[in-house]
């Protein structure tokens, strides 16, 4: 909102203000500013400019906005809603796609509405875009609800490392985004500590009618492991699997993590594309885990 608009953006807003005010005669300047995503000062500047527009011999646009409420007359030429631009269609249809994949299956009525809208608004553009959400929007709505009402949440969580499914009662603390993914920070009663959960691994969630714990537990200070990893093959895939924990370029990189089991599994699952060079304790732990895995085949 603080971005200064270009003259073209301002012109577009002026054109769109006319039909909006016409269909909402007497709207307040503050509501208009909010709807158009600009400050009241900028909106007033738009209205002032608009006032001067039209054919000045007999056809100036008549605007009234003295007391904080706006109405418009004599703007027949511009009083039509403009066509949606391709960018607008793409933004709306991508949004509709994401919603449709979050809606409960039994809401066939809404799913049909979205299908109709895609065709009505899309004009053929709808086929060039496709979106599925990274996380379940229903879970995010529940987490937001818990944060707002300070209540506890019960979740079924799929652990990343050993892949076990556990039922946990948590008190949500924060919701944040990192690397295009949603995360929940919460106090977990099962772990009796603060934990971070990836929203897309929460398989189901229920809001409990219990007040959330208010005490803040400091995050456990796990010691970090610094390891030197050699990427032998598949540079891009290996690097991406190390995510944001990796630094350095080329085939020998530094990895900093506080979970040895995560690093060990990542290296073993790479099927030989990566190997740990140092420290030796991490190397022997990996060799030990691989031997244990081999044992089941004997």
């Amino acid at each position: 909102m603080s971005k200064k608009s270009t003259p073209t953006q301002k012109a577009a807003r002026m054109l769109d203000l006319v039909p909006y005010i016409s269909s909402h005669q007497g709207v307040s300047t503050s509501e208009l500013a909010e709807q158009f995503g600009v400050s009241v000062t900028e909106l007033l500047s738009d209205l002032n400019a608009l006032w001067m527009c039209g054919d000045d011999r007999f056809d100036l646009i008549e605007l009234e906005f003295a007391s904080g409420y706006v109405s418009i007359r004599n703007a027949d030429t511009l009083n039509r809603v403009r066509n949606l631009s391709h960018q607008e269609i793409i933004a709306i249809v991508l949004g509709l796609d994401l919603i449709s994949k979050d809606l409960p299956e039994e809401r066939i009525d809404l799913l049909e509405d979205i299908e109709t809208l895609r065709r009505k608004l899309g004009k053929g553009i709808e086929r060039v875009i496709d979106a599925s959400p990274a996380s379940d929007g229903e879970v995010i709505a529940l987490v937001k609800d818990c944060l707002a009402t300070r209540r506890k949440l019960q979740i079924e969580y799929l652990a990343a490392v050993d892949g076990s499914l556990s039922s946990r009662v948590v008190s949500p603390i924060d919701l944040y985004v990192s690397d295009n993914r949603d995360f929940l920070v919460a106090f977990c009663e099962l772990a009796d500590a603060q934990r971070t959960f990836r929203i897309d691994r929460i398989k189901s969630a229920t809001v409990l009618d219990l007040p959330a714990m208010s005490k803040v537990i400091p995050v456990s200070t796990d010691t970090t492991i610094e390891a030197t990893v050699e990427i032998v093959t598949e540079m891009r895939r290996s690097r991406e699997s190390l995510g944001k924990f990796v630094t350095g370029k080329g085939s020998t990189v530094e990895v900093s993590t506080y979970r040895l089991s995560w690093l060990a599994r990542t290296v073993i699952a790479s099927g030989g594309a990566m190997k740990v060079l140092a420290p030796s304790t991490t190397r022997s732990e990996i060799a030990h885990l691989a031997r244990k895995a081999l044992a089941i085949y004997r």
């Binding site: 577009a12 807003r13 769109d16 039909p19 909006y20 016409s22 269909s23 709807q35 158009f36 995503g37 809603v81 403009r82 949606l84 631009s85 960018q87 607008e88 269609i89 793409i90 933004a91 709306i92 949004g95």
Partner: peptide, 11 residues
């Protein structure tokens, strides 16, 4: 873009 599209439809 999303906002300006919505405004047009609200109009």
């Amino acid at each position: 873009s999303a906002l300006s599209g919505l405004i047009k439809l609200k109009s």
